[in-house]
Design a binder for these strands. Structure first.
Lengths: 229, 229
DNA sequence: CGTCGCCTTGAGTGCACTCAATTATTGTGG
DNA sequence: CCACAATAATTGAGTGCACTCAAGGCGACG
């Protein structure tokens, strides 16, 4: 039965968050027909900015960065992709961003052109992508005031709170930051040293506890929230 | 004939740039049936952030700003809307941004809910909105590195070049900046004084000529481009 | 002619940057 | 398992840029 939800999709960890969520079996089968799984190890690149755009994909697990190279050689992260998020632009023949894995990442990837054709034949899928893109736009715009005005302390505090939220960690339970200090600096538009200074500052003030390079516990979310605004 | 392109649309200045462009007469008639014209004078607000989202619209002439209020009371412009651009989010019941006119502006506005229903019935229109939204996302992300890293001089230079491009002005022909210094500061994430200082700096260096508060000529685009990045 | 809004110019300060050195952690081979 | 190397993070010192605060100029408009 071609209209049944494919077994791979039914078992997918991102099944209920990705573009696939809410699609009828018919649309899901159409997507499944052109998709395949791919694992990226940390640091590997999915698309290079400027190169012809070959693939798009749904992130199943792990963390991707969407980044741009600046004239002075620095890198600015313009988006972080979490499980369920969509990577790439089905209608752009040339990639505008470099998309790379910050951790080991599991993706369901689609050839860009085939995906574009499939979307044209399945308005329900296209509608989902539209809503998702509108949400992504809102997220990008939320980051604008942060990068434009907020002081370094506020950026770091807000980022830590956001990471805890995304890791679905409540209270002061420990969790692992999926980004290095360098990646955080790229995302927050700061120098590595500045990120480091404020993180150790928070630790010295008793707002957080650190263990190893990536382990962290938020001891005082209220104080962190106060410093984030 | 209900499937004819309505006369108002045929005469519209934004007919070939707005969401309407490329729509078949049938879709155009559906949009026309729920749309009406509205003129905003400079400073008037179309939507307030946080209020229920009532309307969306296509900008026909003039300039709108899409702005967010920060915790410290400052305003950050997260998008500028030029003729043909789409304002609002048809699927969001609450406005996330304050949208206001920077100049007198002419819009074709649609009740949000009716527009959402119309889009669901007309996949071609929805597809156009998707492509437009993807382009807007790219534009927002292009602004991110600017606000995160670029020095004030680079931001102002890039902005002036962009304004000339949007005004479709070539060479050193004079044109009118549609924004006040204050609005430019809100868009560039700078203080008014900083914008003013760099503009007069460019004038003193012979890169631009000013006439009145809004009039400007770009005398040396190459030098401006050099200073923009 | 005076007022109001917008813009310009000046002085001084603070924050985040760069450069530089040290420490901590992770990974690898003996 | 330990020593070592390589990478990542921290810490320190000094500087520059854009900010705030403040005053003055310029035009538009009544």
């Amino acid at each position: 039965m071609p209209s049944e939800a494919p077994a791979r999709c039914a078992a997918c960890a991102a099944r209920n968050r990705a573009l696939c969520a809410g699609l009828a079996d018919r649309e899901l089968a159409a997507l499944h027909a052109i998709g395949r799984r791919r694992v990226l190890s940390a640091g590997q690149v999915l698309t290079w900015a400027g190169d012809p755009a070959i693939v798009c994909g749904n992130l199943v697990s792990g963390l991707l960065k969407v980044a741009r190279q600046e004239a002075d050689g620095r890198t600015q992260i313009v988006g972080l992709l979490f499980p369920g998020d969509f990577a790439g632009d089905p209608f752009d023949t040339r990639a505008t961003d470099t998309i790379a894995a910050l951790t080991e990442a599991d993706l369901c990837i689609y050839p860009r052109e085939a995906l574009a054709r499939t979307l044209e034949q399945h308005p329900a899928a296209e509608r989902l992508l539209l809503r998702r893109t509108l949400a992504t736009l809102t997220a990008a715009r939320r980051a604008l005031p942060m990068l434009a005005h907020a002081r370094a302390e506020a950026r770091v505090a807000a980022f830590l709170l956001d990471m805890a939220y995304r890791a679905e960690v409540s209270g002061d339970r420990p969790f692992v930051l999926p980004l290095s200090r360098g990646a955080m600096a790229e995302a927050l538009g700061l120098a590595i040293e500045t990120v480091s200074r404020h993180i150790t500052g928070f630790r010295d003030d008793g707002l957080i506890a650190l263990s190893g390079l990536r382990g962290i516990r938020l001891l005082d979310r209220v104080a962190l929230a106060r410093r984030s605004g």
